[in-house]
Design a protein around this nucleic acid. Structure first.
Lengths: 160, 160
DNA sequence: GTGCGCATGTAAGAGGTTACATGATTAA
DNA sequence: TTAATCATGTAACCTCTTACATGCGCAC
């Protein structure tokens, strides 16, 4: 919908700005592209390049736009989520407090690094829909950092 | 780890306080319980009840605790996420602005309802690890609401 | 008397990831 | 020379959801 793209391009786009919404691997991406092409939702144009593999540029057809529009009108499915870190924290019931603290502090550092990465990535963005998605990722990231700090402060650190 | 439970109990627990971390369906839950039992990580005790189906109470064994502890020590896998709403918002490129606004406003109402539900659910909780998970869900929820309000304010509403 | 809560489970299928295969160019 | 980027694709596998099957008690 955004613009004609190859499978490779789509994966890059999804793994960068759309990372907060979903992820894509070639194992799903290419077969899906083939299927949508067979259904008439996409058209292809092969582009030969020098010094590089040729690429297949996919473009959405009018039928594709109609079906996308139909899909957009239907209510979105509930978010599907698996946060292994949260699960581990919950299950860490007989772990010594300082191990739990290490777990949480480590997660905070990772999340802070991700926040920085997202902020620098947001700089290059002008498209408003892309900016919205980035803002979403940023605010969720920031909320998690605040929560992690609060959790850290609540872990009882015993003096030996 | 928390306490001995039946599969039915685990599902309720996961679907309430652990909803922000993962979800469970019987189709995965029961076979997994059988597998862990066969591996020696769990023990069972069947409890007959009057007027109700008998239940199987599973209890973690020492071996189970050792394996859980091993798993806890390994770094958590990255969060896996599928947010269909975010995807739809991103793809809603040729939708009229007022339709986009309706989409976003509707999502905000849903999220506000979820926040209220989470808040009332948090009242009954005394276990600190449960409280942490609930706090996580609450702050992410609140962050999303703030973001949705910001997005709403950025949608250009044309006067007819 | 209808539906919900309790409580167990299975089978089919949908959906996804990982690992593999190929191969040229370019930057460290 | 080693690794990353570009670019396509398949096959095996794992995992999870959905739908079904069963059946009692209780509240509306």
């Amino acid at each position: 919908m955004e613009c004609p793209m190859s499978g490779y391009d789509i994966k890059k786009r999804v793994n960068s700005v759309l990372g907060a919404a979903t992820q894509a691997s070639y194992g799903t991406l290419y077969p899906t592209l083939h299927k949508l092409l067979a259904e008439g939702c996409l058209s292809v144009q092969e582009v030969l390049q020098q010094g590089r593999p040729s690429k297949k540029i996919y473009r959405i057809t009018d039928q594709g736009k109609r079906e996308l529009s139909n899909w957009l009108k239907q209510p979105a499915a509930a978010d599907q989520i698996r946060r292994e870190f949260l699960l581990k924290l919950y299950l860490a019931r007989n772990l010594p407090a300082h191990d739990v603290l290490a777990l949480v502090a480590n997660r905070r550092e990772e999340t802070e690094a991700m926040l920085t990465a997202l902020q620098s990535e947001k700089n290059g963005i002008t498209d408003p829909k892309q900016a919205w998605v980035m803002d979403y990722a940023l605010s969720v990231c920031q909320a998690e950092i605040n929560w992690l700090k609060k959790v850290e402060s609540q872990i009882p650190v015993a003096e030996v």
